[in-house]
């Protein structure tokens, strides 16, 4: 086993946050059923969270002892802007999914993300967006009947019209 010999920027803070979260969860687990009985609904949560607290302490102590890794910066190596931007894009997608519907939000997301990451111009991005969206829509909505959020596009009405039209004309 090769143990790490230095810590990365932000690692100390992360491990500290983990410890705080573990303590909070331990307190929450205690609140379920206190130490009432071995078979209560709080038994396993208590066991799990106490192990979390102990191991979080061990990890934190180990991390404090290590020297900071040289030449590594949080903003460049751990959380570069590109990650932040993509996370924000995904967040937007998820927020808009229900209000404006799957088709529109996914199209916007794919188009922006591909233009930004692939950098081959907007025509290529648009083409790729349409092809991949059509594939995903066919597989999920049409074959496996997953009802994706419809939002502002009345998909079911459009499909009913298309199928009516087909049955009327053929």
């Amino acid at each position: 086993m090769n143990h790490p010999t230095s810590r990365r920027p932000g690692e100390l803070l992360f491990n500290l946050l983990v410890l705080i979260a573990s303590l909070f969860l331990f307190w929450q687990a205690y609140a379920i059923a206190q130490f009432s009985s071995l078979s209560s609904s709080g038994a396993l949560p208590l066991a799990a969270t106490s192990i979390m607290v102990i191991s979080a302490c061990l990890v934190l102590i180990k991390t404090i002892r290590l020297p900071l890794e040289p030449h590594v910066r949080f903003i460049r190596h751990i959380f570069p802007p590109i990650i932040g931007i993509v996370m924000a894009l995904i967040l937007m997608f998820a927020v808009m999914l229900e209000p404006i519907g799957f088709i529109l939000s996914a199209a916007i997301f794919l188009f922006i993300a591909m233009t930004f990451l692939h950098r081959k111009g907007w025509v290529v991005s648009l083409g790729l967006t349409l092809v991949s969206l059509a594939l995903v829509y066919c597989v999920f909505r049409l074959i496996f009947k997953v009802i994706l959020p419809e939002g502002i596009i009345p998909e079911r009405e459009i499909m009913a019209v298309i199928s009516h039209w087909f049955s009327a004309n053929f």
């Binding site: 009802i147 459009i158 009327a168």
Partner: peptide
Amino acid sequence: IGALTALTLSTTALAAFPEKDIQ
């Protein structure tokens, strides 16, 4: 044109329930 007329017809005439799939 056919598709469009079908669309307008079905929205204006309000065909009897059910006019689309039920969930």
